[in-house]
Design a protein around this nucleic acid. Structure first.
Length: 257
DNA sequence: ATGGCATTGCAACAATGA
């Protein structure tokens, strides 16, 4: 069973590329972020034609998450428990084959010290509480998404240039560590302890050809599910195509019936 | 210090991203 995550930076702009990748890769589950459209405008039919069930939690212009699954989806939860109606749509949880799957688009944070940075740290705190109060570290659970945090310097092309900057600052990394301490394991690192690979490259300044990237898209799993994981990898191929997302998909394979 | 590139909503360029 393959579970994948991909920040597509607008599903409308990326539809041909995403459907082609889904046809080629056939993930059992795909968590999408930044769909940037309302639910009614999500191209659901393009994926049901490929055999997928689709759940969306969209909003116009910014944010929005969706999950595609080849297997039946149950127990859909949208957003945090006490979110206001107009809250930013960044969290979507489903159950597929007894695995709790949580799709997140963690806020970017703009600049360290900014209002958006405070919002990001608060959102991360809410995410921790969501796990602490609402999930069981002993269940099979995976959280996939654009975390907008490079967990360590090994996840950064130029750690000196990025030192203390947004996506790399210590408070962000500490917030991520709190989630890890709840009981989550970085599947890419588990299978590739020393590899320097990235999942996002800036559109500007030839970021991709120069491999000026960060590893900010992740699949983290509870221990019982991590034990069943066979590998986790980043597929750079779609980043090389015409009109790509600035993020590459991340995929984990599990030994599940 | 700034822009660099891309997307959306709007119908020019501002907001946002990372």
């Amino acid at each position: 069973m393959k579970i994948a995550t991909w920040n597509v930076n607008s599903i409308a702009a990326r539809l041909p590329l995403v459907t082609q990748w889904v046809k080629d890769s056939r993930p059992d589950v795909l968590c999408l972020q930044e769909i940037k459209c309302v639910d009614a405008k999500f191209p659901t039919a393009a994926f049901t034609e490929l055999g997928y069930e689709v759940v969306t939690f969209g909003q116009p212009t910014y944010n929005g998450v969706a999950i595609l699954s080849l297997h039946p989806i149950s127990d859909v939860e949208k957003g945090f428990i006490n979110d206001a109606e107009d809250a930013q749509r960044r969290l979507l949880a489903v159950t597929v084959k007894d695995v709790r799957i949580i799709d997140v688009y963690i806020p970017n944070g703009s600049e360290v010290g900014s209002e958006k940075y405070a919002y990001k740290l608060n959102w991360l705190s809410q995410l921790h509480d969501y796990f602490a109060n609402h999930c069981d570290p002993n269940q099979k659970l995976v959280i996939g998404g654009d975390y907008n945090i490079a967990p360590a310097d090994a996840d950064v092309h130029d750690p000196i240039a990025w030192y203390g900057q947004i996506l790399c600052s210590q408070p962000e990394r500490d917030a991520l560590q709190r989630l890890a301490d709840w009981g989550l394991h970085d599947l890419f690192r588990r299978h590739h302890p020393a590899e320097r690979q990235f999942s996002w490259w800036d559109y500007r300044g030839g970021g991709f050809p120069r491999n000026h990237g960060l590893r900010i898209d992740h699949l983290w799993a509870t221990a019982s599910l991590a034990e069943l994981s066979k590998d986790c990898w980043i597929d750079k191929a779609p980043r090389k195509l015409e009109r790509p997302s600035d993020h590459a998909p991340v995929i984990a394979e599990f030994q599940l019936t």
